[in-house]
Computed example of a mutant assay.
Amino acid sequence: MKNKLIFIFLDGVGLGEKVDSNPFTKAFMPTIFNLIGEKLTNTTNVTEQNILVKGIDACLEIEGVPQSATGQTSLFTGYNAQRHLGYHLMAYPNDQLISLINKRSIFKYAKENHIKSIFANSYTDKFFKSFDSTSPNYSVTTRCVLAAENKFNTLDDLVENKAVHWDITNVTLQDIPNNKVPLITPFTAGENLKNLTTDYDLVLYECFLPDLIGHRKDMNKSIMFLEMFDKFLEGVIYNKSENVQVLISSDHGNIEDLSFGGHSKNPVPFILIGNKAHHFLKIDTINEIFDMIFSKLFGIVSISEFEKI
């Protein structure tokens, strides 16, 4: 059976110290604990037959604190976007980063290599009504969808369990006019994400709740999120096929240290759940993930053999 991948991108999650300001030390996360046997912190390093957990670098040798636009571009293109710009860029990609995304991004590269892929997130009606491909206010993941000319999931797709909303349970949709989207459990959302591998080989899902909560320095909401995510992950891995690999990573730290409410230089987690975990042992930086996905899971020639920027 050919390999399939669920890539869960958590915005703003690093591996922090075992201190009171780290909600990972307080949250009840039985799914993660059963997988790795400990709380997830900066000392976690697990190398087992079917799971790899380690911290990887998000700074990429550029001074300053990692930011979303450069970090996500590095994750989803394989280029060192930080080095390309010479600094860390916040929020949305600028023209230089968009050019990298248009040249080689995760969905475009998948399509070029006949790998069926999908961005699992759903978009609201408001997005489609105001859509403007020239807008400077689109995230890296949205730009990746545009670069590949892939479909954007609608709320109808979400109702039909063919998408997952960024908040996992659809709670942020409950007050929109004429709402038709039900609340669901985190476990059900995880199962819905897993089920997309029936039709797709590469499934990318983004949740930016941890970054939002981290900026607010809200310990209670941080713990609630981590416990919800743990149930979500349980749904993802419950009865998953052996050929389905689950990858979890981030663009920069934040929620793991609520002492100051900003991004951190902490390593970010690299978690690979599946029987191909041993292929990722040498990964050390976020921009290496792209190449590892395509070369180790899908058998595509290594990016290192391509022309660099």
Rank of each mutant, 00 (worst) to 15 (best):
N3F: 03
K4Y: 13
L5A: 12
F7E: 03
I8A: 10
F9H: 15
L10Q: 07
P23L: 09
F24R: 09
A27F: 04
A27V: 03
M29C: 11
M29G: 01
I32A: 08
I36L: 11
E38K: 11
E38I: 00
K39L: 01
T41I: 05
I51Q: 02
L52W: 01
V53M: 10
K54R: 11
G55V: 08
A58Q: 05
L60P: 02
L60C: 09
P66C: 07
T73R: 13
T73A: 14
L75W: 04
T77F: 08
T77E: 13
T77S: 14
G78R: 08
A81K: 06
L85A: 12
L89V: 02
Y92W: 11
S99I: 02
K103R: 14
R104G: 10
S105P: 08
K108V: 10
Y109K: 14
K111F: 05
H114I: 04
I115V: 09
I115L: 11
K116F: 02
T124V: 14
F127M: 07
F127R: 05
S133G: 00
S133W: 06
N137Y: 14
S139F: 05
T141D: 15
T142S: 15
E149C: 01
N150G: 06
K151F: 12
N153A: 08
D156V: 09
K162W: 04
W166L: 11
N170T: 06
N170L: 01
I176L: 14
P177S: 08
K180L: 10
L183N: 10
A189H: 06
N195F: 06
L202G: 11
L202Q: 11
E206T: 12
P210E: 05
D211W: 11
D211E: 08
L212C: 02
M224W: 01
E227Q: 11
F229D: 07
D230R: 04
G235P: 04
G235Q: 05
V236R: 00
N239H: 14
K240F: 06
E242D: 14
N243Y: 07
V246E: 04
I248S: 02
H252D: 03
I255Y: 04
E256H: 03
S259D: 11
S264K: 11
K265V: 03
V268D: 02
D284Y: 00
D291Y: 06
M292I: 00
K296W: 03
L297Q: 10
F298Q: 14
F298E: 14
I300G: 12
V301Y: 08
K308I: 06
